[in-house]
Nucleic acid binder design. Structure first.
Length: 261
DNA sequence: ATGGCAAATTGAATTTGA
């Protein structure tokens, strides 16, 4: 059994104590991080190796974004990708055993869901479109893609479908773009396989809501998808909500898959 | 559709997140 976690840490340097806690409590073999927010020379390689992840694939930049794959198993064929013509550290892949792992941080998309006035929203939509083309061309070899997709696709992936229809992360145009990506890539939503609709499931709660536990105004932004051949290997999923309540939390929590590979 | 926060960068204010 192989355990894989995906987690938007919102700064790896600030979140090192919680990464260590994740290693102790869940003992994942692979951790896909988004928003590491550190340039390569500031990335805490030694501390992470001490926590137990000997193998690290990193694509980072100063200040923003940044993705990393931490692993107890060897990583092969490490690749990083530019999308929409930008070198902005949002997509890295590596092969573990015979599975290609893609760790992706889709742009947030800014505030206003209007393609005419908000270039960040256009960037987000173009990014998803480019991912769609990228994975459509891919062969049918075993792969898993995960990360912070910044889109909560279903009504049950948000606390209120109605209230969030105009809010970036849940607008119909984004949801449709993600659906196309999902269908053309012939993916399986591993998390929904274990927690079928209509159960409400979230992986993110805003920092701006101090009563986040009580109000529970969450969204499911973090995803684990597999190709169809790997789908049967997903034995269990855990959304580690307790990590939102620890000291100095990220606003995202780890999503963890048990894989029979 | 906002926002009461958080973090990085640059040096108290700005940007980005979603």
């Amino acid at each position: 059994m192989l355990k894989l976690a995906t987690w938007n840490v919102n700064s790896i340097r600030i979140r090192l104590p919680l990464l260590e806690k994740l290693a102790q409590k869940e003992n994942p073999d692979i951790v896909c991080l988004q928003e590491v927010k550190a340039k390569r020379e500031d990335f805490p390689f030694e501390e992470i190796k001490r926590i137990g992840f000997e193998n690290i694939a990193l694509y980072s930049m100063p200040g923003y974004n940044g993705v990393a794959i931490l692993s107890k198993l060897p990583l092969y064929n490490i690749r990083s990708y530019h999308h929409v013509g930008r070198d902005d550290a949002r997509h890295i892949s590596a092969k573990i055993k015979n599975v290609e792992i893609h760790n992706i941080y889709i742009p947030a998309g800014g505030d206003v869901p209007d393609e005419k006035t908000n270039p960040s929203f256009v960037h987000k939509l173009d990014f998803v479109e480019e991912l769609t083309e990228f994975f459509e061309k891919e062969s049918d070899r075993q792969k898993l893609i995960c990360g912070d997709f910044n889109i909560a696709p279903s009504e049950n992936d948000v606390w209120s479908h109605k209230a969030l229809l105009q809010t970036i992360s849940h607008t119909p145009i984004e949801v449709e773009k993600l659906r196309m990506f999902f269908e053309k890539g012939r993916f399986v939503d591993a998390v929904r396989t274990i927690f079928p609709e209509p159960e409400k499931i979230y992986s993110w709660w805003s920092y701006r809501n101090p009563n986040w536990q009580k109000n529970d105004k969450g969204r499911r932004l973090d995803h684990i998808w597999t190709d169809k051949s790997l789908a049967e290997s997903v034995r269990n999923i855990k959304i580690a909500k307790e990590f939102r309540a620890f000291e100095r939390p990220s606003d995202h929590v780890p999503v963890i898959a048990d894989l029979e590979i």
